[in-house]
């Protein structure tokens, strides 16, 4: 049984035109029908440009946002619609690490209280007391447990992100959604936090949904990777297969755009022209067709559905073809 199974998940945000009478406009289709499953201890990378819906997807999976349609099953149980006490109990199993290590910690609470909050909210008293548990957690993530009474502003960005990790793993969850956990950190600090996340995963058999725009980081940490564009899944495959044999023209363009720290490596670059279209008014047919280098008439008429081209390799394109761009 999969740990998490997401089926045709949609999250639309309503918009309103307020003139004389308020009436509803076209909704913003932030996430528009994505499906995937996640095994215990596995890491799924979620990549795409800003505005592709990857963060919304992460938050919807955790029920921080209410899904518009689709189902979310956790350990075989449908959790799409649960509320109240059931939802609160679910939070023991699923947690989140946020992008902004400055905005996600309450500046008026000492670190000890921040990390103890999950115990308090869930009314759990860990063995040996909350304080001891918190100090163990601080030690686990590489913080000095004596800094229990310090406030977030006394820590550096990397240390703050460690606090966020400690809070997320306090209740020994089975799934943690990490939303750009290292993108605000300096290069030399990024690696420290990535290693920490990997160590904790190995110890506790945690599963991660790892949301990031940095394709190099995602390649390093993920087992499987899903590429999103305008709320839809473009491609999903095992890490190495996706990077070595990308089949969707969007995946190929995205990868070819990443600069590699090696001078004069004349890689082929697929330049995408223009900007991301508005998710309020997505193109007909394939949403990527307006920027796709190989789009033809059929792409405007027919929505390409994800097809399993090789085992475990899903591509939503009418003309999938391998092209190595690294």
């Amino acid at each position: 049984m999969s740990l998490l199974r997401v089926t045709d998940l949609k999250k639309h945000f309503p918009t309103y035109n307020q003139k004389l009478i308020r009436h509803e406009g076209d909704p913003i289709k932030a996430v528009d029908g994505i499906s995937f499953s996640l095994e215990p201890g596995e890491t799924l990378g979620l990549v795409g440009e800003s505005g592709c819906g990857k963060s919304t997807a992460g938050r919807t999976i955790l029920r921080l946002l209410e899904p518009t349609a689709g189902t979310i099953e956790f350990e075989g149980r449908d959790v799409t619609k649960i509320g109240g006490e059931d939802l609160r109990k679910l939070r023991r199993e699923v947690q989140m690490v946020f992008q902004d290590p400055y905005g996600s910690l309450n500046p008026r609470h000492p670190v000890g209280a921040i990390i103890a909050a999950p115990f308090q909210i869930q009314r759990i008293t860990p063995e040996g007391g909350v304080k001891k548990a918190v100090q163990e957690l601080m030690e686990r993530v590489g913080l000095n447990p004596e800094h229990y009474n310090r406030y977030p502003h006394e820590f550096s960005g990397g240390q703050r992100q460690r606090i966020g990790v400690a809070r997320a793993i306090a209740l020994k969850p089975k799934l943690v959604v990490c939303d750009e956990p290292v993108s605000a950190l300096d290069v030399s600090i990024q690696a420290q936090v990535i290693n920490l996340l990997e160590d904790i995963q190995a110890e506790q058999n945690l599963a991660y949904v790892f949301i990031a725009h940095d394709l190099s980081v995602v390649r390093h940490i993920s087992d499987r990777v899903m590429v999103m564009y305008l709320g839809k899944m473009m491609e999903l495959a095992d890490r190495d297969r996706l990077y070595e044999r990308p089949m969707h023209p969007y995946t190929q363009a995205l990868m070819s755009a990443v600069p590699v720290p090696e001078p004069r490596r004349n890689r082929e670059r697929i330049l995408l022209t223009g900007d991301l279209p508005s998710p309020q008014n997505p193109p007909s047919g394939c949403v990527f067709r307006t920027r796709c280098p190989i789009a033809v008439e059929r792409c405007a008429a027919e929505i390409p559905l994800p097809v399993e081209i090789e085992p475990g390799h899903l591509v939503a394109c009418h003309f999938p073809a391998v092209r190595n761009v690294l």
Partner: peptide
């Protein structure tokens, strides 16, 4: 730095 074009090693060296 993790690399896009290859998996360097199981662990990064920060």
């Amino acid at each position: 730095m993790p690399r896009l074009d290859r998996v360097k090693s199981e662990r990064l060296v920060p």
